[in-house]
């Protein structure tokens, strides 16, 4: 199966000489359609750098980043911006909604920036909001919504227009346990429907929603758990 996201031997060095920091050291990483991958590691392990490179917001010092078969280095700035709007959706810990826009306008924005007519962009936005269960809040402003509702809007914005790569940076970080689980359920559902998801988290309980968990230490992938079937102990229950 072709990976939606492929990082090939990617390194990223910040600074030079005595002050240089190796944020990532020759990391190879793939996310396939239908797969949710969690990236875990302490701060400074390189997990945020990985996500930034995956979204084309930063370029690697060496190695290459491929999104849906396109090498990001082969694109100019406009090309990368287009990929970010059409293929990649971001979800941030602090939601990053535009306060002056309603939920529907926030979600429609990337489509409008991509040249979609306002009416069509709004219709796509409403569909996305419905998918995350808050169609009724379409005309509310961010400060009129709870944290969980705002994060749903952010997810709707990340998936609007059938984008197939969702990058989430501590998406549950600012939410209570139950609300956090609802957000994970949404990401999970989206990946089950065919998107590839990459989620950075430091919470094991949240990472456990992923098919694969990748552990980063000092810019290196030190281990990962597979997506094997439940152990024999629990296999009967799973098949019931």
């Amino acid at each position: 199966m072709n990976a939606v996201l492929h990082l090939a031997a990617v390194s990223r060095i910040h600074g030079e000489g005595a002050t240089e920091v190796h944020a990532l050291r020759s990391v190879t990483f793939r996310a396939h359609p239908g797969e949710l991958v969690a990236v875990m590691g302490p701060s400074g392990s390189g997990k945020s750098t990985l996500l930034t490179l995956a979204g084309g917001l930063d370029a690697p010092t060496s190695g290459s980043v491929w999104i849906e078969g396109t090498d990001l280095a082969s694109l100019d700035n406009a090309g990368r911006a287009r990929i970010r709007r059409t293929s990649v959706g971001y979800v941030f810990q602090d939601f990053n909604l535009i306060p002056a826009l309603t939920a529907a306008e926030n979600v429609a924005l990337p489509r409008e920036l991509d040249g979609e007519k306002a009416r069509i962009a709004r219709r796509l936005a409403l569909t996305a909001l419905e998918e995350v269960g808050i169609a009724d809040l379409a005309d509310r402003f961010p400060d009129e919504m709870s944290g969980g509702q705002q994060q749903r809007v952010a997810i709707a914005r990340a998936i609007v227009g059938e984008r197939r790569l969702i990058l989430a940076d501590e998406p549950t970080g600012a939410l209570d346990t139950d609300t956090g689980e609802e957000i994970l359920r949404l990401l999970r559902t989206r990946c089950d429907a065919g998107a590839a998801g990459v989620m950075v988290t430091h919470e094991a309980r949240h990472a456990a929603w992923a098919d694969r968990v990748v552990f980063l230490r000092d810019g290196v992938v030190v281990d990962e758990t597979g997506s094997d079937e439940p152990e024999a102990l629990l296999a009967d229950e799973a098949s019931r």
Partner: peptide, 20 residues
């Protein structure tokens, strides 16, 4: 150990979201 425990945690979570 962390990978092994994480794998169990994934199994439990899968049962939690898909089973009865």
């Amino acid at each position: 150990q962390r990978s092994a425990t994480m794998a169990s945690l994934q199994d439990y979570t899968r049962l939690k979201r898909t089973g009865r």
